[in-house]
């Protein structure tokens, strides 16, 4: 089956990103297709490459990036939510006149329509949040 996953919370504060990561890994292992993972609300904070958790802790942004690279996942960060919270790619940072970007590899920034399209194109949409 084809899945779209919605993640509403950032890493560490809540378990939702961890739960979603484990769910996606299990779905891939079972041969399902992940059409898209959409990050909304504070979930956009999963897509910063500047997170430096303690060495004995998991690095969620890196784990998402690695999973995206291994399986060609489409990790989409909502642009409106990202702008509010300061998650930027190079183009967006330039457009906003900012001095830095911070998006992690494998993530891309796009609009909310990508979430709706994910719902339309997928067999199942599962929401992880708080």
């Amino acid at each position: 089956m084809k899945f779209t996953i919605l993640i509403n919370e950032g890493p560490y504060q809540h378990q939702s990103s961890d739960s979603a990561l484990h769910f996606v890994q299990a779905a891939l292992e079972k041969g399902h297709e992940i059409f898209r993972v959409f990050f909304y609300h504070d979930g956009v904070n999963n897509g910063t490459r500047l997170a430096v958790p303690p060495q004995d802790d998991r690095n969620l942004p890196k784990e998402w990036s690695a999973l995206a690279e291994a399986h060609g996942l489409d990790l989409v960060i909502c642009i409106a939510a990202a702008q509010r919270r300061g998650v930027m790619d190079a183009d967006e940072a330039k457009r906003q006149g900012l001095d830095a970007d911070n998006i992690a590899p494998g993530f891309r920034i796009s609009g909310l329509g990508q979430l709706i399209e994910g719902g339309i194109q997928s067999d199942r949409l599962v929401v992880f949040g708080d």
């Binding site: 909304y40 609300h41 409106a80 939510a81 609009g111 909310l112 329509g113 979430l115 709706i116 399209e117 339309i120």
Partner: peptide, 14 residues
């Protein structure tokens, strides 16, 4: 932010 999704989603004729 839920309302923002509803407004965008409305354009998809679902």
């Amino acid at each position: 932010e839920s309302l923002e999704v509803v407004l965008i989603g409305a354009a998809f004729d679902q």
